[in-house]
């Protein structure tokens, strides 16, 4: 496998990409790049523009403005040399139902101009050995997804573009595919994937772009994601009004939630909740409940995309 890693040329690059359908801005000025060895996750709600962006990258849709590049070349359907370096799975996996798993892969290998031995490798990578002679129409949803992934992985391409790769897989399958993608990335494959499941993305991606209503609203590393997660200290006492007054006198900014709990979000309170406990005990208002709560990822996603956050 040759690589562009040495030249730092991104495997995929979006430059101010926009795609409009009349007044609908499916993609609205997205700029991002995916480098070798990176797992970049486009995270967004259904209809956010993830698939449109991916289809544009793959030359299936023409941009209204901006451009997309693969390995430094502007994407066009005729760019035959570029397509030999790209594997993809767009939306739901599709296969020819009357062909077996092996035949479906054989068709794709021929069209990708790959040697026949790549078929066995892909079958083994996706654990499809016992299904190789089974017709695609007789596969379970999970195995159809595996077949779709196997087609994308044929020939170990330098760039993998996967739209919702965990769709239809059971938990063991999700874990297996996650490990496989991490291994491929470690070997230098650039991976661009889309998902609406933040928890899965958090486990897999090295970089995350949150896309909402066609716009890339924020981009972060996996480490940044954990830092952006909101935390708060939740306090319950027998006299909440007095406790809030004591905390305010000590320089904290307590809030009362709809269910009557007091929350404090300051760094000192979060780092030293024992000091809060001591403060309340010394003031004669000992806490009945004191706990640091971490925002779940779904709530974070809703907050970042400006959606209504459930109480």
């Amino acid at each position: 496998m040759t690589s562009d890693a040495s030249t730092d040329t991104p495997a995929a690059r979006f430059r101010d990409l926009a795609k409009h359908y009349g007044d609908v801005r499916a993609v609205d000025g997205i700029s991002l790049e995916v480098k070798a060895g990176e797992i970049y996750a486009l995270l967004g709600l259904n209809g956010a523009g993830k698939t449109t962006a991916i289809r544009t990258l793959l030359g299936m849709i023409k941009p209204s403005a901006g451009s997309v590049e693969l390995f430094g070349q502007t994407v066009s359907p005729q760019a035959a040399t570029v397509w030999s370096r790209v594997g993809f799975l767009v939306e739901t996996p599709a296969s020819y139902p009357e062909l077996t798993v092996a035949e479906n892969l054989k068709v794709m290998a021929r069209l990708k101009r790959l040697p026949a031995n790549t078929i066995e490798t892909a079958i083994a990578q996706l654990g499809l050995q016992s299904y190789a002679r089974r017709r695609a129409r007789d596969l379970s949803l999970g195995n159809q997804q595996r077949l779709g992934l196997a087609k994308a992985l044929l020939g170990q391409p330098q760039l993998l573009v996967l739209d919702e790769p965990a769709n239809g897989l059971d938990p063991a399958g999700v874990n297996e595919i996650r490990q496989l993608l991490k291994t491929l990335a470690a070997q230098g494959t650039a991976i661009l994937l889309s998902s609406h499941i933040l928890a899965e993305v958090a486990r897999l991606a090295t970089r995350i772009g949150i896309i909402h209503r066609g716009k890339l609203i924020t981009e972060m590393t996996a480490e940044d994601l954990h830092e952006k997660v909101a935390r708060r200290l939740e306090i319950r006492t027998r006299d909440q009004d007095s406790a809030a007054w004591i905390l305010r006198q000590a320089g904290h900014q307590p809030h009362t939630t709809s269910d009557g709990a007091i929350t404090v979000e300051g760094a000192q309170a979060l780092e030293f909740p024992d000091q809060i406990a001591t403060l309340l005990v010394d003031a004669g208002c000992p806490p009945l409940h004191l706990a640091v709560h971490t925002e779940d990822l779904e709530t974070l996603f809703l907050r970042l995309t400006g959606q209504e956050v459930p109480a």
Partner: peptide, 18 residues
């Protein structure tokens, strides 16, 4: 009908050849 067209669009074998 079987949603396989999308798999034929970004390949070293040209769309015209297909």
């Amino acid at each position: 009908a079987e949603h396989t067209a999308k798999d034929l669009l970004a390949l070293p074998t040209s769309r015209t050849a297909i």
